[in-house]
Design a protein around this nucleic acid. Sequence first.
DNA 1: GTATACTTGCAACGCAGTTGCATTAAATTA
DNA 2: TAATTTAATGCAACTGCGTTGCAAGTATAC
Lengths: 137, 137
Amino acid sequence: MNTIHDILKQHELRITPIREMVLVVIRDSKSALSSQDIELKLNDIDRITLYRTLKTFESKGIIHKAVDGTNVQKFAMCDAGCNEHIHHDQHAHFNCDHCGSTFCLDSLEIPAIKHDTGFQVRSMDVIMKGICADCAD
Amino acid sequence: MNTIHDILKQHELRITPIREMVLVVIRDSKSALSSQDIELKLNDIDRITLYRTLKTFESKGIIHKAVDGTNVQKFAMCDAGCNEHIHHDQHAHFNCDHCGSTFCLDSLEIPAIKHDTGFQVRSMDVIMKGICADCAD
DNA sequence: GTATACTTGCAACGCAGTTGCATTAAATTA
DNA sequence: TAATTTAATGCAACTGCGTTGCAAGTATAC
C-alpha cells in the first residue's frame, strides 16, 4: 500500500503540501472528483494551482479523467500500473442522474464488440447512467 | 424521406432561414459537428443564435449530443423516432484520435453488460477511439 | 549551506456557453 | 390581405472553466 509520499516519489514529483492534500482528497473519495469538488474540500487552495496539479498528476499517470458523458471534468485515482507512458484506465464509469457523482467500475468486464466500420479501434469507454446506490434509497 | 421543412413542422418549430441552413449542414455531415464546425461552414451566422438553435433542436429531439469523450460538444441528427419526450440515441460513437471527428455507429450492436454494483442502470453509452477510415490511409 | 529548477500565487486572458432585451419575422387569425 | 401573436434573431453583457506568463517561494541534490 503506497503512501502519498511513495506515490509522488515513484512518479518523480516533488513532495509539496498542496500535492499531498490534493492526492489525499482524491484517494479517499468514493467517486471521481471535479476541480470544483476538490476546491470545496480544501479551503483556500488556489484554483489555478489546482488545475496545474491535476494536470501534472494526470500526465504522470497518477490520476485519470473519468469519462462520464457530462461536461464536468472529473478525476479519479489510477491503478498502480499507470505511469506517464501507459494509462490502463479502460474501465466503465457510472454517472448518477440524480446526484451527478461518477464512479469507476473497475471490476466490470467489458465484452468485446465486433464491428465492420472500417475504423481501427484502439480503446473503448463505457458510460453507464442511472441512479447510484446512495440515491436509490 | 423528410425534407427540412417537414422535420421542423413535425417538431412544431417555425421554419426560418437560419434553422434550415443549420439543419442542412448537420443532416449532410458524415460526422457529428461542433458549434464551431457549423459556424465555419455557414459564413456570418450569429454564434449566439447558433447555440440557441442547437439547443432548441436538441430539446425537440431533432439532433442529439454525440458523447465522444472529448471536451468539444458535438451534435448529430437523431433517428426519426425521437421527439422532445423520447430520445432513442443509445448507440456507440467513434472518435478519431487523429482528426477529432466523431461518428455515430448506429448499426453497432451493444451487448448487455452484467453488473452487481448496486446501481440502477438506465442507459449506456459506448465510446470507441482509434483511427477513422479517412485517416487510416 | 548553496544552487538549481520545480512549484505556487496571482494577474490576465481566451473561449464555450448563457442571459437579457429590443427588433424582426413566421404563422395564425380575422 | 392585413393585423395580431409570439417565436426567433442579433447584439451586448456576463459567467465560469481552463490556460498562460512571470516573479517569488521552496523542495531536492550536491
